[in-house]
Design a protein around this nucleic acid. Structure first.
Length: 887
RNA sequence: GCCCGGGUGGCGGAAUUGGUAGACGCGCUGGACUCAAAAUCCAGUGAUAGCAAUAUCGUGCGGGUUCGAUUCCCGCCCCGGGUACCA
């Protein structure tokens, strides 16, 4: 048979569509397998070869699981809100919905051309009002939930007890109290604002170098704006604990842990000399309190004005104004030299009563801990640098002893070097206060000081998290509108479920306002509302960020056409959690953390039945491409390069070029379009190559020659098995049965472990075997087709039907592997002398160690290597190796 | 700086409860087929020496443990990703 992949693939894709072969039914009696791809943002550029990598992997697993008897849920949809469509609208006036529709159609066509077994009846789109109705609904749930710290869970706001003293103050106080507790709140937030995009951006979008992730400019600055925020830090502990039970890559879990950033320490109150106020600091090292020689408060700290003395007022005010203009970049990276100013005030060290100066410095951040620190320059690098800059005293209280060099130790003891590791306390006792640390080490010191502080009422053990409130609004058009009304009297109300979805209004221009307000502020009629009492209100003009839609889409796939609820409880109960979630590592922290947060809230409210949404996570690696650069390192577009005898030259200048591996990019002209690959080699070849190129989680370069290699394999399969004369054997040979069942075993195991590259190489070996023996039985062929089917489903279906089988190959149970076919009668032992393999010796299976020893020593081959030497020892590992130690 | 990955033929990569390094594929070489070429099929292919049998070397570098190390331990080098004063 000629391998006419175009005809074969068209035929079977039609067959699957006509027969709805991959439709998932909610048959609760079967074991379920929910396999999810991270749904794409349908960009105008279409699919790139990175998309099919993850999609093919999940498709193989799904097809395999179906034939193993699982009820498989394998859906696809579109994360279609987002900036590019809006940007295009600003430029051309085309409604983002139009652009989005077009892009989705293109993506669907491309994905369908790959023969992926999605249930297209479950397709969802985050921009569809029937979908975002429920995104808005979940937002109202967040708004209506508070976190009960005592129970460690979220509860409906109706279950919040309002203290009598608040009630007595009045309605506004009650409202204020409740708002303080909600998981979603509307508040003044100091946020990043990008002058270029005219939008607010999340902290996470502002890169370390002070540029905006989305647009790349450095036009970002800090502004105060009214924003919707989510209190994700309330769930910090739950999000941290939840990680332990998940089958996720360790690296991703570690990144999430670091992002949450839990630390334990103590809050300590310092009295201020001549001021009836206390300064509270957070420290992870209360044990170093004896070494605190000054204090620092953040420029934004509320006590700055009160603390500053008249003499220093001017200098401090100047410093604060200056610091406010700085971006985080200036405050961190560039500030190798720390800056600060003395407030004129002294604080009193509670352990020894000594007065220490209070400084203002921007290396202390208001957003973490209490915004104030006690500085222990001898044992903290940052404090040490600051102390050296401003010539503040450095008192060593922790002797490194033998933990460092004698030279460094004496520097540390003299206060000329910083030591932040463990040591033995010195100068750390105050008998009057009943505290004595000298001679102890760090762990014990922290414990004792914390206990002492708590007893003395000067402080308490505290846990802190780096995780900050999640800024949840954007000044954009193309996002979910908030179901929120701001009334003229200052009240905020949310729409009822009956009033959802709140659709986007038509607007004339998509340009954000100069002040950064959303395009929705131009939406005329839509904008204003009046209630039954005649009270006027204005709708929220912000929209939700792109994260919103992707935070819960895995739940909607369970019941995507449900008009009455986000999903039916019974179905959710059956399908959740997602058994396997595959996508890029770029979502390791944000998307996965936000999703987990929403999920936990929904869990606490009894809306979902699992504590965590994604049981197993797998990150596919990036697919790169070869690129070329000159000796000086400048890049040369691929169409300017020509190859000669394995070397590369510039087409015009003739200069020899160096081949490198780089991300695919338009400028390098090394982008591979899946459509072209499908056209030239077929979908099965594309699928197979993406899996064969290397381990799924590795970063690897694309080569067209590699595609040719797997195409070759498929062609050889088609040629051999498509020839009826090759399938005429009536009884299968032992060797072929062995090769077949080895393949069956290896491929099954490799799919379970997601090691697709080695599974494919095993199938290649089997095919090579078939060419060698020339003929196999039709039964052998059938079994092989089934093994091949998850990987190259079109060709497998074709050969399957050609061999006289009815119906789709996908519905047949996975063939049973028979271990008996793999048993060996002889073992070929590599025989080593002093660890060097000298010859191979074939021996029957099942010999005792003594028998193997004597067989080896008696063999003619061994004589040569034993000449003039005596055997000191023999190592025999039955079935593996023999090593003779000679002297 | 810190954290996490990773360094194996000309190339992508296999193989690690320590047990025949280089499976499979690409490329290359030779042969068959052909008037010829392409395609295909068959064979070979880590390096060095040798006609060959074979020998020596060989998994980033230097040590160590072991009968035996790509695999374990110690110390380095290089590459990729993440991160940034979190007290």
């Amino acid at each position: 048979m000629e391998y006419n992949f175009r005809a074969i693939e068209a035929k079977w894709q039609q067959y699957w569509a006509d027969n709805k072969s991959f439709k998932t039914v909610d048959d609760f009696s079967k074991p379920k397998f929910y396999c999810l791809d991270m749904f794409p943002y349908p960009s105008g550029a279409g699919l790139h070869v990175g998309h099919p990598e993850g999609y093919t992997a999940t498709d193989i697993i799904c097809r395999y699981k179906r034939s193993k008897g699982f009820n498989v849920l394998h859906p696809m949809g579109w994360d279609a809100f987002g900036l590019p469509a809006e940007q295009y609208a600003i430029q051309t006036g085309t409604h983002p919905a139009t652009t989005t529709q077009r892009n989705c159609d293109n993506f669907r066509r491309q994905i369908q051309s790959l023969g992926l077994s999605y249930d297209w009846d479950r397709e969802i789109n985050t921009t569809d009002p029937d979908y975002f109705k429920w995104t808005q609904w979940i937002f109202t749930k967040l708004y209506g939930t508070w976190f009960d710290a005592a129970l460690g869970k979220g509860r409906p706001i109706s279950e919040l007890t309002i203290p009598e003293e608040i009630k007595s103050v009045g309605l506004a106080a009650v409202r204020n109290f409740v708002d303080q507790k909600r998981l979603a709140y509307y508040g003044e937030a100091q946020v990043w604002y990008c002058r270029n995009c005219k939008t607010v951006c999340a902290n996470e979008e502002v890169l370390n170098d002070g540029s905006h992730e989305k647009c790349g400019t450095k036009e970002v600055e800090r502004r105060f704006l009214k924003q919707w925020m989510l209190r994700i830090p309330h769930y910090a502990e739950r999000l941290l604990e939840g990680l332990d039970g998940l089958d996720w890559p360790e690296g991703v879990k570690e990144m999430q842990r670091n992002w949450i950033g839990r630390s334990t320490g103590a809050e300590v109150d310092f009295k201020l000399a001549g001021l009836d106020k206390q300064l509270r600091v957070y420290t992870t090292r209360p044990d170093t309190l004896f070494g605190a020689t000054y204090m620092v408060i953040a420029p934004e700290h509320e006590l700055v004005a009160a603390i500053t003395t008249d003499d220093q007022k001017k200098a401090v005010e100047q410093y604060i104004t200056h610091a406010a203009l700085k971006s985080d970049l200036d405050r961190t990276d560039l500030a190798k030299v720390k800056s600060g100013v003395f407030t004129g005030r002294y604080a009193i060290n509670p352990l020894n009563g000594k007065e220490i100066p209070v400084w203002v410095a921007d290396y202390v951040l208001m957003g973490y801990g209490t915004g104030a620190i006690m500085a222990v320059p001898a044992h903290d690098e940052r404090d040490f640098e600051f102390a050296k800059t401003y010539d503040l005293p450095v008192v060593c209280i922790l002797d490194p002893q033998e933990r460092t060099t004698p030279e460094n130790r004496s520097k540390v003891l003299a206060g000329d070097a910083c030591w932040s590791e463990d040591g033995v306390y010195i100068n750390s006792a105050n008998p009057e206060m009943g505290i004595q640390l000298n001679g102890l080490t760090k762990e014990e010191g922290i414990k004792q000081v914390t206990e002492w502080l708590e007893k003395a009422g000067l402080g308490k053990a505290t846990v802190n998290y780096k995780l900050r409130d999640w800024l949840f609004s954007r000044q954009r058009y193309w996002g979910e509108p908030f179901p929120v009304i701001h009334w003229e009297d200052g009240e905020i109300s949310l729409l009822d479920e009956m009033e959802l979805p709140l659709r986007l209004p038509e607007v004339e221009k998509y340009q954000p306002g100069e002040t950064g307000e959303s395009p929705l502020s131009n939406a005329g009629e839509w904008l204003t509302v009046t209630d039954k009492q005649g009270r006027k209100g204005r709708r929220e003009t912000n929209t939700m960020p792109q994260w919103a839609g992707s935070c819960w889409y895995y739940l909607r796939f369970i019941d995507p056409r449900n008009e009455n609820e986000p999903f039916a409880k019974a179905k959710e109960n059956y399908w959740m959690p997602v058994d396997l979630y595959v996508g890029g590592a770029e979502h390791a922290v944000l998307h996965l953390l936000y999703s987990r947060f929403w999920h936990k809230v929904l869990f606490d409210l009894g809306i979902v039945s699992t504590n965590e949404p994604f049981q197993k996570l797998f990150n596919q690696g990036m697919i790169l491409a070869f690129a070329y650069e000159t000796a000086s390192g400048s890049k040369v577009p691929s169409d300017q390069v020509h190859e000669k005898e394995g070397k590369y030259y510039h087409l015009e200048t003739g200069e020899e070029l160096h081949q490198i591996v780089a991300k695919m990019s338009k400028s390098l002209k090394n982008v591979v379009n899946p459509d072209d690959v499908v056209e030239k080699f077929g979908a099965d070849s594309l699928r197979l190559y993406e899996m064969f190129i290397g381990p799924l989680d590795a970063t690897k370069p694309w080569t067209e020659n590699g595609v040719k290699g797997v195409y070759n394999f498929l062609r050889r399969v088609a040629t051999f098995f498509g020839e009826p004369g090759n399938l005429t054997l009536t009884e299968e040979s032992k060797e072929t049965l062995k090769a077949l069942h080895q393949t069956l075993k290896k491929v099954g195991e490799d799919i379970e472990e997601m090691k697709f590259n080695t599974a494919i190489s095993q199938m290649m070996m089997f095919t090579n075997h078939c060419y060698k023996v020339g003929k196999v039985t039709p039964e052998t062929a059938n079994t092989f087709y089934q093994v091949l089917a998850p990987f190259a489903p079109h060709l497998a279906e074709e050969l399957w039907s050609l061999n006289g089988n009815q119906g789709s190959i996908g519905i047949c149970p996975w063939p049973q592997f028979v271990p008996a076919y793999l048993t060996e009668e002889v073992v070929e032992y590599p025989v080593s002398f002093n660890g060097k393999v000298r010859f191979k010796l074939e021996l029957p299976v099942g010999l005792s160690v003594a028998e193997i020893e004597s067989s080896v020593l008696e063999s003619d081959l061994a004589k040569k290597w034993l000449e003039g030497l005596s055997v000191a020892k023999m190592i025999v590992v039955p079935g593996k190796i023999v090593n003779v130690v000679v002297k």
